[in-house]
Computed example of a mutant assay.
Amino acid sequence: MTDLTVNLKNGDTSSEDSFVVLSDTSSAMSKVRVGAVQAEPGWFDLEESVEKTISLINQASEKGVNVLGFPEVWIPGYPWALWTNSAIDNGEMVHKYMANSLVRDSPQMRRIQQAVKDAGMQVVLGYSEREGASLYMGQSFIAPTGEVVHHRRKIKPTHVERTLWGEGQAESLTTVVDTPFGKVGGLNCWEHLQPLLRYYEYAQGVQIHIASWPAEFCMPDPKVMAWQYHETGEASYRASQFMAIEGQTFVAIASQILTEKNLERNFLVGKPPIKTPGGGFSMIFGPDGKPLAEHLEDGEEGIVIADVDLTDIDRAKTFIDTVGHYARPDLLSLLVNPSADSCITMMKK
């Protein structure tokens, strides 16, 4: 790749106001424009979801975004009915959801990859991944070339999620990829509450982390139903912010929203703790935990954007580097199994 300076103001390739420099060594300048999607999916509709994904990639490209993150299972949306309805009542919903989940090697994915290539950005795409007759909570890391350079799955779906999605294997422990815009990582939802997984991501040198979340809502009236604070958008916002502080990394929250018109489509009419319009809490944090972007309203759709300087990570790590000078490996260390298990093992003769 030849040297190319991209100007985010007007697309000029010569201005001294240029933002990112790409070279044949794939090394990045320190300044990057990060975007996080806060939007409503094309609920239970694969084609609608893919079209909206491409539209958001194009919108982000027009705004000069270099790294873009999507919410958890953005395609075809997070099925909150798993939490509010019984397994028997959800039978038809699950059947429809499976039929509209995304196959990693498919014409739909190739259309998304082409859009990423045309935009020349790095994308972390969250989706319900279908492989055969099984579903997984997938994240694909799509490079500016359009190539899926890494794919991972949520290593432990949460609570009732385990009735729909399977678990990721050892390859999903790799959560960071090298990009022209720095080291980009990603986790799904409550993976942010798994301290050993977070720590392993810090050890992989993450600089920009995509925190992919579903729609989450405020605490319901306790007279209506019992609920846990850790299942709210506010708690998830705080967990993502803490990861920025603990890991000294930029963190971009990408979250879904839900509107009134789509309650019936989601089998959620009259179901607390659902609030419409609501669910969104997207934000971008600095490596010291400071919010860097303008806040979108709870049910507002858009792309949260911040210009970041990767050298600011050094400022935070001067105080605390949890996998460096602030670690005590002689006292505490992490054991990692890099080998994936298989359903079939061929015996040797």
Results as ranks from 00 to 15, higher is better:
48 E>T: 13
95 H>M: 09
315 R>F: 06
241 Q>E: 08
32 V>Y: 01
169 Q>G: 10
31 K>A: 08
17 D>A: 13
315 R>T: 14
41 P>I: 08
305 I>G: 04
107 P>T: 10
193 L>W: 12
217 F>D: 01
278 G>W: 00
88 I>N: 14
291 P>M: 13
145 T>I: 09
248 Q>P: 07
222 P>N: 09
140 S>Q: 05
346 M>C: 01
207 Q>D: 10
258 L>K: 01
276 T>K: 02
15 S>M: 07
335 L>V: 14
283 M>G: 04
54 I>F: 07
158 T>M: 09
139 Q>C: 09
165 W>N: 05
58 N>C: 07
158 T>Y: 13
191 E>M: 11
39 A>T: 07
4 L>K: 14
345 T>M: 01
325 H>Y: 09
222 P>W: 06
340 A>G: 11
150 H>R: 05
289 G>C: 10
199 Y>D: 13
222 P>E: 12
16 E>C: 04
145 T>W: 09
324 G>S: 11
202 Y>S: 04
10 N>W: 09
186 G>E: 03
277 P>K: 00
192 H>S: 14
89 D>I: 05
169 Q>W: 01
3 D>C: 10
36 A>K: 03
65 V>N: 08
191 E>R: 09
123 V>T: 10
58 N>T: 09
332 L>Q: 11
173 L>E: 02
265 R>D: 03
347 M>T: 10
102 L>V: 13
232 T>I: 08
294 E>F: 07
148 V>S: 12
225 M>H: 07
66 N>G: 10
161 E>T: 04
131 E>V: 08
129 E>G: 03
184 V>C: 11
94 V>M: 10
14 S>Q: 12
143 A>F: 03
61 S>E: 10
330 D>L: 12
230 H>M: 10
30 S>E: 15
281 F>N: 04
66 N>Y: 05
196 L>V: 13
135 L>M: 08
345 T>P: 01
342 S>A: 14
244 A>S: 15
60 A>F: 04
197 L>T: 12
144 P>I: 12
225 M>K: 12
156 K>M: 06
23 S>G: 15
207 Q>G: 05
285 F>H: 11
63 K>Q: 15
268 L>A: 11
225 M>V: 06
263 L>H: 01
30 S>T: 15
98 M>F: 15
264 E>T: 01
248 Q>T: 13
285 F>Q: 11
3 D>M: 09
225 M>D: 05
104 R>K: 12
38 Q>F: 06
181 F>L: 07
61 S>K: 13
297 E>D: 14
231 E>K: 09
163 T>F: 11
316 A>N: 04
131 E>Y: 03
198 R>P: 06
239 A>L: 04
35 G>L: 05
113 Q>M: 11
